[in-house]
Design a binder for these strands. Structure first.
Lengths: 151, 151
DNA sequence: AATCAGATTTAGACATGTCTAAATATAATC
DNA sequence: GATTATATTTAGACATGTCTAAATCTGATT
């Protein structure tokens, strides 16, 4: 019932391209292939499967559009991505790494986990205590040797 | 060069079973299959590939043992899992969910991310401020409506 | 309207990871 | 030592996701 990670990525990319372009136009196979750094036949294959799943309206030789269902999935993914990325950056993970990890984790984290992380980020940004806490955490990270690095 | 998520899971499970049993014995295909809830032929296939990759010593019909290399991978995974799980529990994610998510994320998070999470957990558990902070966070979670649930 | 370039799809290959059913090896029992 | 039950492997299927090479369609040019 749920999409694979790969298919979710296609949905996400189509959404991004639809947002970038004017609303009217359908998104082409080539655009998707370039954005995802895969070859066109892989895209065709994915689109055929996404169409069967009701996530996109795909017309042979004429590009693709997200359905309502597809848009909903894309928006949920975007929201999860934002949350995860914000959270990791807050913890001091470099932006590049935070983005990459968020992009992986968005596909598999439980909603409850995402909800907690969202609250954490909010707490950090909105509670009066957060500045003080953040300062202390920064200090802690400087002073402490990482206990073990799992490698 | 790096193992797939599926193969990493086999390594992890073999390690667990080796630890549970006396040291001497090799781990059997059936034990692994039961632990992972897959059928024996899937295990045979995975063991053949892990052997080629130098992660295990696999003797047809006579079970399997982790190599040094395999043990190292297993330990790194266990460490990552612990860190991720501890972290999620600290944030109030229910244990069941925390365990499941940790088990997914361990295979893909960047080391830098894991390191930051480790430090966060340490900070929470060891800095004098943590109790106060945790209390405030709990309070915040009760009072606030989750901003958006990404669904 | 015919042609041609570029985009797209199809066909067929391969890797990973799973399964069922059938063949085979191991180990325990008689 | 032969038989038999159990464990294991092989063979062959399928789904996902990728690729290359070849076929086909579309749209623009002449």
């Amino acid at each position: 019932m749920t999409l694979s990670k790969a298919l979710e990525m296609y949905v996400k990319v189509i959404h991004k391209l639809e947002c970038e372009q004017g609303k009217g136009k359908a998104t082409s196979v080539t655009e998707i292939a370039e954005e995802m750094d895969v070859k066109p036949p892989s895209v065709t294959d994915a689109l055929q499967r996404l169409d069967k799943l009701g996530m996109v309206k795909y017309e042979k030789y004429h590009g693709v559009r997200l359905t309502k269902k597809g848009k909903k999935v894309a928006q949920a993914l975007a929201c999860r991505y934002e949350t995860l990325r914000d959270f990791l950056v807050l913890l001091g993970v470099p932006e590049e790494i935070a983005s990459a990890d968020a992009c992986e984790i968005e596909h598999l984290a439980n909603s409850e986990t995402v909800r907690r992380l969202t609250m954490f980020v909010h707490f950090m940004k909105n509670s009066g205590q957060s500045d003080k806490w953040m300062e202390q955490f920064q200090e802690f990270m400087k002073s402490e040797v990482p206990p073990k690095d799992c490698e």
